[in-house]
Amino acid sequence: MSYKIPLGEWVAGGVKWLENNDHGAFNQIGSVIDNTTSAIEHGLIATPYWLFAAIFIGIAYWRRGWQFATFCAASLWLISNMGFVEQTLVTLALITSATLISLTLGIPLGIWAGRSDRAESVIRPTLDFMQTMPAFVYLIPAAMFFGLGRVPGVIATVIFAMPPVVRLTSLGIRQVNKEQVEAGIAFGCTPSQLLLKVQLPSAMAALFAGINQTIMMALSMVIIASMVGAGGLGNDVLSSISRLDIGLGFESGLGVVLLAIMLDRITESFGVKKAVR
């Protein structure tokens, strides 16, 4: 008989042990995430939809011009017409809170990885692991630690969506022209001056590309996270699958696509300097 390494059992045991011995900490993390997400969600839902739409279209016009603003107006009207307003806003709240958490953790990590080869050598394989492990797998321990609801959804989303911003921040910092960095040092920059005045400004385009990718990843994961009860548009997608309802599947799917396009184009425009012609 061949011997099978009990890898899965070890991990399961580890998760179990964590669950039993560190309950207080998880509860706290959970409540922070829950509070943040529900605050954003309530804020969005409390805003009249027409005001929300007006602000959104305004931003679209400012960043990309009237064609895109028209597209956004049409999209927002269609979403409301299909009856997905509340789901869309819930999804948007989930994305926003997951993205905020991803960025607060990811940008400093990316900076660290960009400036230290040793940090990079640890962070990179970890990111590879986070990104390639099938996303559903995170849902299991997340649900075990935090119960069902939006918290495990956000946590799983953060794990899945954080790698791009870490990677691209690190890449951006590493790609700063070597002589520009030398110039900074030669003129007497302290390490933090070097970061703020030379490295980060030059890495901005890459950093924004990272943020954009993180938002996109968050959107796709938030839909999957409906499996643990995160709510939003994902719920409709999920129930259309379980009921084999093609019509609902298409409509809710279209809502996701429209939201994705709008978020992508707007965040992308921040990466390109002076995108408005």
Binding site: E179, E182, A183, I185, F187, T190, V198, M204
Partner: peptide
């Protein structure tokens, strides 16, 4: 060293090394 670099010693580079966003 920081003080010396700031006050009394400066450098010009082959690739100019200007900061593009300034």
């Amino acid at each position: 060293l920081l003080n010396l670099r700031r006050k009394d010693m400066s450098m010009v580079f082959q690739s100019f090394a200007l900061l593009p966003h300034r």
